[in-house]
Amino acid sequence: MPDLYIGLMSGTSLDGVDGVLVDFSASTPVVVQYACAPFPAKLRAELLALNTPGANELHRAALAGNGLMRAYAQVVTALVAGAGVAAASVRAIGAHGQTVRHRPQEFDGTGYTLQLCQPALLAELTGIAVVADFRSRDVAAGGQGAPLAPFFHQSWFGRPGETVGVLNIGGISNITLLRANGEMLGFDCGPGNSLMDSWCALHTGKPYDSEGAWAASGKVLPPLLENLMAEPYFSKPPPKSTGRDLFSQAWLQAHLSAFADAAPVDVQATLTELTARACSADVLRYQPDLRRLIVCGGGALNTHLMRRLADLLPHAQVASSADWSLPPLQVEATAFAWLARKTVLGEKLELQSTTGAKGARVLGCIYPA
């Protein structure tokens, strides 16, 4: 009998919603259907604006959350229609929501992480139970609230007796190290696609640098790269997580102030190199003997970035998650379907090695259909 869950993910890249319908009835889960939808331009602009303080934020955030749920519901409709299944046969939807602030352990020692999500509305729109708010319990338990995908990475990509790295390059990049001895380490490396995408949009009008071709046509600016790599976050030990709160356009512009004459294409080349260097440096720092690195997220589709990762990690096989039966744009959504199932089953996750939380916790809240 099928054991169906839906996972929905909209990441810091703000390029839209990825959704999967997953059957967990067999020992190896199967992605039955995939669907995606770009954000309407107005919603995307508002979600981006809400990453920084502004007027009337509470009102705007509530309405943006409603709009986000309508976009989520459209993807859910496409998933069940495409798979030819009834909504009632899906046990739950795992909805990550849209991160607009991420400040764990700051201010009062606990801090917060904020994902715009209206799970009650999503349950009403779809007629399916919704699991949401995955990160808050982790933050309450003293953790970073992110990354959470490493637990799924361990389930899907882990191999007994083999050390495997999983690098997700979305708007922010995060690394999971699945060690041969069973230990796991996971944390955010730093910027992924977010700075590259916004710079590309500003100077070319395109939402992203397809295959990294624009960056590949420029040259890296070593003084600018050194300036960017001097950011203290990069040398901070894990557990650690980050987001647009730090790696924003304001952060970039502050570093570019001394490089006003730089050609935009060379800045793009340097931003791509920044992502490659930050990720590879973490691999070399925490698993220098790594032989296999699986890359997922939109960054796995950036040919130039993948080539630079391979150059910087010559002893590792750098390959797309597609080679492991899960296309790059489906990994994060599948992770939240997997997490939703854990919540429904009441299963705790051992969080210490990734988020630094005090112990095992059940993550997420359930909104019945």
Rank of each mutant, 00 (worst) to 15 (best):
K42L: 14
L351S: 05
C279L: 00
D209I: 03
V20Y: 03
L50A: 12
L225H: 11
A49F: 01
L326E: 07
G165V: 03
P264G: 07
R135H: 09
A215C: 07
A319I: 14
N227C: 14
K358R: 14
P207W: 04
L48W: 10
L148T: 04
H96P: 02
F107K: 12
Y286T: 00
Q253S: 09
G182T: 07
P238R: 07
L8G: 06
D108F: 14
R292E: 15
L21N: 08
S325Y: 05
S194W: 01
V75K: 11
L363S: 03
L177F: 12
D311F: 03
G94V: 10
A250T: 13
S210R: 15
D282M: 15
G84H: 08
F157T: 06
R60L: 13
H304M: 00
A254N: 14
G182F: 00
R277S: 15
E226W: 00
A360R: 13
K342V: 03
A146D: 08
A140P: 03
L177W: 02
A316C: 13
S173V: 01
V295T: 03
E231V: 04
K240P: 08
V32R: 14
L345D: 14
D289Q: 14
Q118A: 15
P104G: 11
P239K: 04
W338P: 04
L274Q: 11
L177D: 07
V139M: 09
W338C: 05
L195Y: 06
L167C: 01
W199A: 05
S136R: 15
K358C: 13
L246W: 13
G142C: 13
I6N: 02
S89Y: 00
M306K: 06
V76S: 05
A254V: 01
F107T: 15
Y72D: 12
S321N: 08
Q154S: 13
F151V: 06
G145C: 11
D209Q: 07
A55P: 13
F24P: 05
E231C: 12
G165R: 00
Y72C: 10
L284Y: 01
A337G: 09
R159E: 13
T343I: 05
A281H: 11
F152W: 13
T303M: 02
S173P: 00
S155C: 09
P328W: 03
L122W: 06
P150M: 05
